[in-house]
Design a protein around this nucleic acid. Structure first.
Lengths: 136, 136
DNA sequence: CTGAGTGCAAAACATTTGCATACAT
DNA sequence: ATGTATGCAAATGTTTTGCACTCAG
């Protein structure tokens, strides 16, 4: 089994506090795509005194460290995905906003240089939109 | 040439006011991906008394009518794309948020039914991320 | 005319920031 | 110890809403 988020943070020598451990623990697992607010809720269940500002700043740091991927799938709030190892895409329910991972192996087509508009491309992500079973 | 946004609205018998005409006019053209706030700015240049609430509600209606496509490309604010005819994808600058269209012809791979997670898929959009010429 | 559209201001969210205090290393 | 992380509360940015007034059809 691959190292957990918490283990990866320790391995980096990252300063660990109870708050950061709570955030890491909430984000452990497969197919996890929580908003900052959901992370706050679940982290407060583990550690009641954790504050909103700390959750936001911790999520921002984990993202900058490359330990989380920030997803902007609807116009409302960002979601955080701890599944960073393989590049993978997402399915989004247009009705309730729930998110599923697409197993790796599906690859976005490479964009011909003529279409780069002068940009240096670093990644490509596909968002499949539709309606989930619950919303139908 | 294909009918303009304004012409399409007229053809639907949609009730037209000076405000709605201003919003439609601002969104005319190719490679336009404005935020609500940018639409407000430009619409106020045409019609100083237009209000923020009207711009938001008009954009929402145009989107529901299928005359605009709402893009959630960064976590900040939605952008509105009047180019709805062909399905097309986008290039986004991670630094400044500017957006370019990818010419049609590029298609996202079809997702095998086994990966649908019970969802009914309606569309697939690719977001290519990178850094634009100006930001380098 | 008349219901739908508009402006205004306030509310509802999402996120960020400044600063004094607490704590991991 | 010491510098960084945290909590609090206020600020910022985006979008929505309630309500009285206006106007397109």
């Amino acid at each position: 089994m691959s190292p957990s988020l918490l283990e990866r943070l320790q391995a980096r020598g990252y300063r660990l506090t109870a708050q950061r451990r709570a955030v890491a623990q909430v984000l452990e697992g497969e197919n996890v795509h929580l908003t900052a607010d959901e992370v706050l809720d679940q982290a407060q269940a583990l550690l009641p005194e954790i504050s909103r500002a700390t959750v936001y700043s911790t999520l921002q740091q984990f993202t900058e460290m490359g330990e989380l991927r920030e997803l902007s799938l609807d116009g409302r709030s960002k979601r955080y995905d701890p599944n960073i190892a393989p590049v993978h895409h997402h399915l989004v329910c247009e009705s309730c906003g729930s998110v599923f991972d697409v197993a790796h192996g599906i690859k976005a087509p490479t964009l011909p240089a003529a279409q780069h508009h002068g940009m240096a491309i670093t990644s490509a992500e596909i968002v499949y939109q539709g309606t989930c079973a619950d919303c139908r």
